[in-house]
Write a protein that binds this DNA or RNA. Structure first.
Lengths: 182, 182
DNA sequence: ATTTGATATATCGTTTTGATATATCGTTTT
DNA sequence: AAAACGATATATCAAAACGATATATCAAAT
């Protein structure tokens, strides 16, 4: 089966708000939704080409450029917006999680306990740093909830804060349990 | 860059406990670690072939077969075990999460509020069902924590229970917030 | 002048998925 | 007894995504 490119929907969703180039799209992904979705140039540029061919996006006027190579900006077409809405209205959503941390922990019995504790500590450090960021975003967004879009952003950030706090709580419990073994 | 096949480590980890066929491996993945890691036949069989060529696994005696085509069982070699341990001892772990639910919510402003609420409800139903399962696993594992391996399984399941409970709490908060809009 | 660094597009090999094709064997149906 | 069926199992392929690298362009610094 073909044509199940999720990256298409990410791009269409972003273009529904503003015209963007491939490079811009990458930046938007990296600093807005990266904790629950990622995207690489290797998927973004081919997607833009394919969607332009299919009439879901089209080349748009490029605003002023702040140095460097000229941008190729895209806008969403009516067909593109329809495709986006169809996807949004389908409640089926695949949440695909790959925790290499848990994978290593699951096989922890193969080596010594300290190895697993090290893995948890590394995870904990990463999550702590990200959580600080998320809390800052959350605090800023909470001041501008009169804007409807901001409510949606706020909800996704809150999801992150809630789950990350759960992660940290689990880290402590897990380390305590492992500590009794060593 | 090459040779960063995570599926290799999944297979080696499973083979460290017992000899398995590709089909067995798929079943182990599906009903032990599927909530934090997945694997398809399309990655398992090629991985087994490649690792056999590299001497990380080897064909092993097949136990009795309960009907159907004959199995090809594999065992882990000393080289395979070394590769597994090297990976385990590296604390760096990539946790790659793709929540299509959050993606749809993030772009919720494009359609009406009810669409977003429907998406959250679908997520909530799925998570509720999975959480019941995880809690059962957790209860069963908690009775056999004298076995060292079971402690590791217990910890991963506890991670699931904790995060899933967080998800459900968030679902209620999110729906309440969206309810005020409609 | 030319090197550097930032911006930006494009492409390539590798990994993974999800679907489908193929093989094998015991059991049931006719 | 032969054929059909269903469960078990291996194998393969196109499409999607990643991550790394190559290429292009321009401004500012040296």
């Amino acid at each position: 089966m073909a044509k199940d490119r999720k990256i298409d929907m990410v791009i269409l969703g972003l273009l529904a708000h503003e015209n963007l180039s491939g490079y811009d799209i990458k930046k938007r992904i990296d600093n807005s939704i990266s904790f629950f979705w990622k995207g690489s140039f290797g998927s973004i540029y081919p997607s833009l080409s394919a969607m332009e061919k299919d009439g879901l996006v089209q080349k748009a006027d490029t605003g002023e450029n702040s140095g460097g190579r000229e941008k190729i900006c895209y806008s969403i077409t009516p067909d593109g917006k329809n495709a986006l809405i169809s996807w949004l209205e389908d409640t089926k959503a695949v949440n695909d999680l790959k925790y290499e941390t848990l994978l290593k922990l699951f096989f922890g019995g193969v080596t010594d306990v300290q190895t697993s504790i090290n893995t948890i500590n590394a995870f904990e450090n990463e999550i702590s740093a990200s959580l600080e960021m998320l809390k800052m975003y959350q605090a800023n967004l909470s001041k501008v909830l009169d804007n409807k879009d901001h409510i949606y952003y706020y909800l996704t950030v809150s999801f992150g804060v809630e789950t990350y706090e759960g992660y940290l709580k689990w880290c402590e419990e897990a380390k305590e349990m492992l500590g009794k073994l060593s």
